[in-house]
């Protein structure tokens, strides 16, 4: 499976005329590849993710999923920044939500939910409601819910940006562990450069107004322990390289304020 983004652009209409959010985006996400979109606020990275997820239509260009094993719409699991758990559903029922639409046998549904609850380490919390969980645990439910449909492609829109710094570090490690067990093609959006280098096979740096691909950087580091020991020097130089690409745009974004 391969996701090909072909010459995609997106314009939004505003009271002061059209705003070009994205322009000339060409990008391919390969089988089992972890691609991270990173950029300053307002660069349109979440917009691109929404278009890949089929929640927004591009103004120009197209997005194609190639080499599907079956002739059907691709299954896309999305993890949202604000998580979006249904408050009236327990942990178990939230993870089950996507499976309910798939006409699976009841036994299969339960088996899958149990599997993914264990995968994200939430055993014992099945009957809890979202308001009873911490932010990190809630996002584990969000991840399990997206993974449970066994998607062809996983989309994650700043999934840990609402968490405190400590939970965030732990969840990044956790995500790597989970990802390694599924090896799903993943498109991940973040504004956190270290997070991008920590997780990605390739980092796509977006510039701002209009959002364009400024650079694509392949991360030549082992998948685990990137920020430790002998990897640390290379890790930091990647971070610096991305920061130099983003810095000016981020400064401008700060001065203009967030107009999204």
């Amino acid at each position: 499976m391969q996701v090909v983004i072909e010459n995609v652009g997106k314009k939004f209409q505003s009271s002061r005329g059209d705003v070009t959010a994205l322009e000339n985006i060409d990008l391919t996400i390969n089988e089992q590849e972890f691609v991270v979109l990173v950029g300053p606020s307002g660069c349109g990275k979440s917009t691109l993710l929404s278009m890949v997820g089929g929640l927004l239509s591009p103004t120009s260009g197209r997005i194609v999923v190639k080499d599907l094993i079956e002739d059907r719409d691709p299954l896309i699991g999305i993890v949202f920044q604000e998580i979006g758990l249904f408050p009236w559903r327990t942990v178990y029922e939230n993870i089950k939500f996507g499976l309910e639409e798939m006409n699976l046998a009841a036994g299969e549904v339960n088996k899958r939910v149990d599997h993914f609850i264990r995968l994200v380490g939430l055993n014992g919390f099945e009957p809890a409601y979202p308001h009873q969980l911490s932010g990190g645990m809630r996002q584990r439910v969000g991840i399990a819910r997206a993974l449970a449909i066994q998607p062809d492609l996983l989309l994650m829109d700043e999934p840990f940006s609402a968490l405190d710094a400590q939970s965030r570090t732990l969840m990044q490690e956790e995500l790597l562990r989970i990802w390694y067990q599924t090896k799903l093609s993943t498109l991940y959006v973040t504004h956190n450069i270290a997070e991008a280098i920590y997780l990605a096979d390739r980092v796509v740096v977006l510039s701002r107004r209009p959002g364009r691909i400024a650079s694509i950087i392949s991360i030549d580091l082992p998948k685990f322990d990137r920020d430790k020991g002998t990897n640390l020097f290379k890790f930091n130089s990647y971070c610096d390289q991305v920061w130099q690409l983003i810095r000016k745009d981020a400064q401008l974004a700060l001065e203009e304020g967030d107009e999204q």
Partner: peptide, 19 residues
Amino acid sequence: LLIKVAVSFKTSRTNIISK
């Protein structure tokens, strides 16, 4: 966002209303 989540799982219109 909750409706977006439901749509992302390809939930039918009637199920969006009831669920």
